[in-house]
Deep mutational scan, measured.
Amino acid sequence: SISSRVKSKRIQLGLNQAELAQKVGTTQQSIEQLENGKTKRPRFLPELASALGVSVDWLLN
């Protein structure tokens, strides 16, 4: 799922939720909701993929 991929990649990069949120241009709460499965397809998906160094396709599939 996107939530597990985001969380595992974030941890692999040594980032906390607030640091990832800053790179993406969103809030820590938005990252938390995404990782908890409350958000399925965030509006900041391209920025998120870029910050994590992955493709949008990788996040979604």
Rank of each mutant, 00 (worst) to 15 (best):
L45E: 02
I2M: 13
V24M: 06
R10W: 02
L59S: 00
L52Q: 00
S30T: 10
K38P: 08
N36A: 14
S30Q: 15
L34Q: 01
G37D: 06
I31Y: 02
I31R: 01
S55H: 08
L52G: 00
L15W: 14
L60I: 14
S4K: 11
A21K: 03
V56G: 04
A18S: 11
D57L: 11
K23Q: 10
K40I: 12
E19S: 07
A51M: 06
A49N: 00
V24D: 00
F44L: 06
L48F: 03
I2D: 02
P46S: 13
N61Y: 13
K7N: 06
Q12V: 07
P46L: 13
T39M: 15
I11S: 07
W58R: 02
K7C: 08
E32F: 08
S3Q: 09
L60M: 12
F44V: 03
L34S: 01
A51R: 03
S8M: 15
G37V: 03
P46C: 10
Q22A: 15
F44Q: 04
V6R: 04
R5W: 07
S3D: 06
A51K: 05
G37R: 05
P46Q: 13
I11Q: 10
Q22R: 13
K9R: 15
E35P: 01
I31P: 02
E35H: 01
S3E: 07
K40T: 14
E35N: 03
I11C: 10
A21V: 00
A49T: 04
S50R: 11
F44C: 06
I2R: 02
L59D: 00
S30I: 12
R5E: 02
Q17E: 09
G25N: 08
S4W: 13
S8E: 14
L20D: 02
R41T: 12
V6P: 02
I2G: 03
Q28V: 15
E19Y: 04
V6Y: 02
L52I: 02
N61M: 11
A51I: 10
S30R: 12
S30G: 10
G53F: 06
N61F: 11
V24I: 11
V6M: 06
A21Y: 01
W58E: 05
S3P: 08
T39K: 09
G53M: 08
T26M: 07
S50L: 15
P42D: 03
R43D: 15
L60H: 06
T39H: 10
S8D: 11
E35I: 02
R10K: 00
L13E: 04
L45H: 01
S55V: 05
D57S: 13
V54A: 03
I31N: 01
T27D: 11
Q17T: 15
A51Y: 06
E19H: 05
E47Q: 14
K9N: 03
L13T: 03
E32W: 11
T39A: 10
V56T: 09
F44Y: 14
V24Y: 01
Q28A: 13
K38V: 13
N16F: 05
D57P: 08
L13P: 00
S1T: 14
K7T: 09
T26K: 06
N16A: 09
A18R: 12
A18K: 12
D57V: 09
R10P: 02
L20I: 04
A21R: 02
S8Y: 15
L20K: 01
L52F: 05
S4Q: 15
T27V: 05
R41Q: 11
L45D: 01
S55I: 03
V24Q: 02
Q12S: 13
L60G: 05
R43I: 13
E19F: 04
R41N: 14
N16C: 07
L52R: 00
E35V: 02
P42L: 10
K38N: 12
S1N: 12
T27C: 07
L15D: 02
N16Q: 08
V54D: 10
S55A: 08
Q22C: 10
E19K: 05
V6W: 00
E35R: 01
E19D: 11
A21G: 05
S55T: 15
S50K: 15
K7G: 02
I11W: 06
K9G: 04
Q29A: 13
R10Y: 02
E47H: 08
G14I: 02
S30M: 15
L45W: 05
L34I: 12
L52Y: 01
V24F: 02
K9M: 14
T26P: 01
E47Y: 07
I2Y: 05
Q28Y: 09
S1V: 12
L34E: 01
V24L: 08
R41L: 15
S55K: 07
Q17P: 09
K7D: 01
Q29H: 13
E32G: 06
P42T: 07
L13Q: 07
S8H: 13
L48V: 06
R43W: 15
A51T: 06
V6Q: 01
Q33W: 14
N16Y: 04
P46F: 12
G25Q: 06
S55M: 05
T39C: 15
L52W: 00
I2S: 04
A49C: 05
S55L: 06
S4Y: 12
I11A: 08
V54F: 03
G14A: 06
G53P: 00
E19I: 06
A18N: 10
I31D: 02
K9F: 05
K40M: 12
Q33R: 14
Q29R: 13
G14W: 03
